[in-house]
């Protein structure tokens, strides 16, 4: 801490000075070292390596030895590729729909409903919503495939659509986008649900009572008391889920493999860089596609922080001795 700050501080600074060795000595360095190393090796290094590879023409043809620097060549190629714009819109729509309708929207709805019904019932419903998350991905996606399949195996087609005389083919190709949103949303909703529920339940009881006495209906209480009080968890879940949706592709890979207009950006990076049918993996181009994702992620994070006024949610600690 700077001296000027210390002087303008509270009466605490007037008290006998504690030894300030923590501030001046190298202790802070050793305290930060383990976390620092982990951050560097596992968070920064992959980003740097991705950026470095994205500036090369590395692929299965060049191997790890005969590659060449291409500068922004891969990015220029990205811009000229006809798929790029399409992938971009698919990703944006996928993230937006899943986020709004499930990971934040549905999560908030479940949290609000299950905290306004008898407690045990609420716990039961929340437990049900956790099932998709604890089911192995392949088994879970397989259930969706059965759901969408053509008769006689398809759950929806043979039980609902066929008796009603509706279409009887496999539902997946025609509604692939809807299905990838549903598949991801049903998993994603439980994360926000848990966080929102605990945030709602930790709102002080006297404030809830005061709002009732002040004349708030249940809906008004949600709007004027609960939502403002859980702004911080809302910010966190929105940010976190945006970033994880941007980079998520496993469910889509298993469900559609990217067919029928469901190849989102992260899946594209995977397909180009690591999963070509003919074994032609373009590491350089794949890394460039992934790097765009990293930049998009950072931009979203900054946008959210500004919009939610992140700084105002944190208070400077008043303890001076640390």
């Amino acid at each position: 801490m700077k001296d000027s700050e210390a002087r303008s501080g509270t009466a605490l600074t007037q008290a006998p000075q504690f030894p300030r060795r923590l501030n001046t000595g190298p202790a802070w360095f050793w305290f930060l070292l383990p976390a620092g190393v982990i951050t560097l090796v596992f968070f920064f290094a992959p980003v740097i390596i991705t950026l470095v590879i994205s500036a090369t023409n590395m692929s299965t043809i060049t191997g790890l030895t005969r590659w060449e620097w291409v500068g922004f060549g891969n990015y220029e190629r990205l811009l000229s590729l006809p798929q790029t714009v399409r992938r971009f819109w698919i990703t944006l729509r996928y993230v937006l729909f899943t986020l709004v309708f499930f990971n934040v929207g549905m999560a908030l709805l479940i949290a609000l409903i299950t905290t306004h019904i008898p407690r045990q019932l609420g716990t039961f419903f929340r437990a049900v919503w956790l099932l998709p998350r604890i089911t192995p991905v392949v088994a879970y996606v397989f259930m969706w495939q059965i759901m969408a399949a053509a008769p006689p195996h398809g759950v929806i087609t043979s039980n609902i659509l066929e008796p009603l005389g509706g279409p009887t083919g496999n539902l997946l190709p025609a509604n692939a986008f809807l299905f990838i949103v549903l598949v991801n949303g049903f998993i994603g909703a439980s994360f926000g649900m848990i966080i929102f529920t605990s945030a709602i339940e930790s709102i002080r009881q006297d404030i809830m009572v005061a709002s009732l006495v002040d004349g708030a209906s249940k809906l008004q209480r949600i709007r004027y008391i609960i939502l403002p009080q859980i702004r911080w968890p809302l910010l966190f879940v929105t940010t976190y889920q945006t970033l994880s949706l941007l980079t998520s592709y496993e469910q889509i890979l298993v469900l559609t493999g990217g067919r029928w207009g469901t190849e989102v950006w992260a899946l594209w990076a995977f397909n180009v860089g690591l999963d070509d049918y003919y074994g032609f993996f373009q590491y350089g181009l794949g890394a460039a596609i992934a790097a765009v994702l990293v930049i998009m992620g950072i931009l979203f994070a900054l946008l959210y922080m500004r919009y939610f006024r992140f700084n105002e949610l944190l208070h400077e600690p008043r303890i001076d001795v640390l």
Binding site: R204, D206, I207, V209, A210, S211, L212, V213, A216, S217
Partner: peptide
């Protein structure tokens, strides 16, 4: 409560933060 025409003061003040 909202139909009862009451005002209430709490030990914790219970102001909306």
């Amino acid at each position: 409560p909202k139909e009862r025409d009451i005002g209430m003061v709490f030990q914790s003040y219970a102001l909306y933060p």
